[in-house]
């Protein structure tokens, strides 16, 4: 999929470059683009290290576990059929906490562990259960405490207030997660009514 988009962009650049007589600047753009990718990565490097370091501290001190306990009540609404101490629920809660803190390296293995636990209690092996759908939808919608990457990129681009987007990001992610959850709940109920 990504191969087609990427290849398409390069091919389109060639033909549009010829049509607009801009082939010279297309060539220059390839060089400067590759260079600016490195500049961008380096501008992100410091913050990425610092934030990952901070999060490792949070993980070792047990702050993540504490946060996970804090969101337990919410999971009762999202996954009403699971018992509060099922291994699936525990893995999902840890995954959501990791995502919330921006620990994406830790979140994916936890999420996959949760999917395996959900798979064990799924009666139809090749069809997603309600819990799986809900969990995946929450994961695709992303709620994060600090959008550090974007903040750093804004700072690197010379923003006068790189942090200004924090509150809008929170509101925006809460809205999109809420819509995702409501649609998932609604569709799962409608499907059931149709089947029985």
């Amino acid at each position: 999929m990504m191969g087609y988009i990427w290849g398409g962009m390069v091919i389109a650049a060639f033909f549009f470059g010829i049509a607009n007589g801009q082939l010279q600047s297309v060539a220059e753009a390839a060089l400067s683009g590759a260079e600016s990718a490195v500049t961008m990565a380096f501008s992100l490097l410091g913050m990425m290290c610092f934030w990952s370091g901070m999060l490792e501290i949070a993980k070792r001190s047990g702050l993540t576990d504490w946060l996970a306990r804090l969101i337990r009540p919410l999971t009762k609404i999202l996954f009403p059929k699971l018992s509060p101490d099922s291994p699936a629920l525990r893995a999902m809660v840890m995954n959501m906490t990791a995502n919330f803190l921006g620990l994406s390296n830790a979140a994916t293995p936890l999420g996959l562990a949760a999917m395996h636990e959900l798979d064990k209690i799924n009666p139809n092996k090749d069809t997603a259960s309600d819990e799986m759908c809900m969990f995946v939808v929450i994961n695709t919608a992303s709620i994060s405490l600090l959008p550090t990457t974007v903040i750093t990129m804004r700072a690197a681009a010379g923003s006068i207030d790189p942090f200004s987007i924090i509150l809008p990001v929170w509101i925006c992610s809460i809205c999109s997660v809420t819509v995702g959850v409501i649609v998932a709940k609604y569709l799962s109920r409608r499907n059931k009514r149709r089947r029985f």
Binding site: T108, G111, L112, M115, H116, L118, D119, K125, D126, T127, A128, M132, C133, F135, V136, V137, N139, T140, A141, S176, V177, V179, G180, V183, A184, L187, S188, N191
Partner: peptide, 22 residues
Amino acid sequence: VYYGAVKIKNSRHSVPAALCAD
């Protein structure tokens, strides 16, 4: 990644719900 890991073929309403969120 998530559905691939547990070999789910029918993702039911995940895609429409996730796209609504997007």
